[in-house]
């Protein structure tokens, strides 16, 4: 690894990092701040009608503040927006330099391809880490100012589970970024794979292959059991994608 390379990567990605953190944080802060408003809104509706539309949702959703935060954040905004961020970050990490041809300039410096690859991957992971945790921590911090009780431990654990899911998407996007010479193609391929996985999970037996289902951490939030095996499998998949990406990069010609 090489600090010069890392500095350069971070510099190139800085605007994405800032923009991503701002957007995610804004969305995160909106959740606890709008809680009372939403409750008031729902209380205006007749209870029978509410039950008609939301019958399957546990009614304590509106009574349990932590559950509400989780349902809006870990089960909705964070996976959706986080996935978009992971794709946007990952797709240009390698394909960006291949596309504007600076890769051959970089690779004619005395650096190993391994260091180049690792500096890029590390940058991607670091960016996602900063975005996700800044937003989540600020959300929990803000929630502490409301009169409602917050189960910080549970929310942090759920965000950890979501992070692992986003890591899978980031790695997949990096893999395609290595294979394709254009960021747009890499992003498109990642979206395509995710859509296929999501569509496949409409069939019950295939639900298990959809990373989105695992990354909510629903089981843990509602039943309290930590999804150890899905988390391990997702980590393994992510590392696997990165290993393949590195292998492809070592062979790639520029």
């Amino acid at each position: 690894m090489n600090s010069t390379l890392l500095k350069k990567e971070l510099r190139e990605a800085l605007w994405k990092l800032v923009l991503g953190t701002v957007i995610l944080t804004a969305l995160a802060l909106f959740i606890p701040l709008s809680y009372n408003f939403i409750i008031d809104l729902f209380s205006l509706l007749p209870y029978e009608q509410l039950e008609k539309y939301l019958g399957t949702i546990p009614t304590d959703l509106f009574n349990d503040f932590s559950l509400y935060l989780w349902s809006q954040w870990n089960a909705k905004n964070l996976p959706q927006l986080g996935a978009i961020m992971a794709i946007l970050v990952g797709m240009s990490l390698l394909a960006g330099e291949a596309n504007n041809k600076t890769m051959s300039f970089l690779l004619t410096r005395p650096v190993s391809r391994r260091s180049v690859f690792l500096s890029k991957v590390l940058t991607g992971i670091l960016m996602m880490f900063i975005m996700v945790w800044t937003a989540t921590l600020l959300m929990i911090f803000t929630a502490g100012f409301t009169p409602n009780a917050v189960d910080t431990g549970k929310l942090l654990t759920c965000t950890f589970i979501t992070s692992i899911g986003l890591f899978v998407i980031l790695s997949l996007s990096i893999l395609f970024s290595t294979i394709f010479g254009e960021p747009v193609k890499a992003g498109g391929a990642t979206v395509l794979i995710l859509v296929i996985l999501a569509a496949a999970s409409w069939f019950k037996p295939l639900r298990v292959i959809n990373p989105f289902i695992h990354m909510y951490g629903a089981q843990y939030m509602i039943a309290g059991t930590f999804p150890l095996i899905p988390v391990l499998l997702m980590s393994l998949a992510a590392v696997g994608f990165l290993a393949v990406a590195m292998w492809v990069f070592q062979k790639k010609e520029y």
């Binding site: 350069k8 190139e12 600076t102 051959s104 300039f105 004619t108 005395p110």
Partner: peptide, 20 residues
């Protein structure tokens, strides 16, 4: 290759350096 590049200077036909 890495050792070669440490001791070799190279000017490409169209050097693409970081524009920013």
């Amino acid at each position: 290759s890495e050792s070669i590049r440490r001791r070799t200077g190279y000017v490409a036909e169209m050097p693409h350096m970081y524009g920013y």
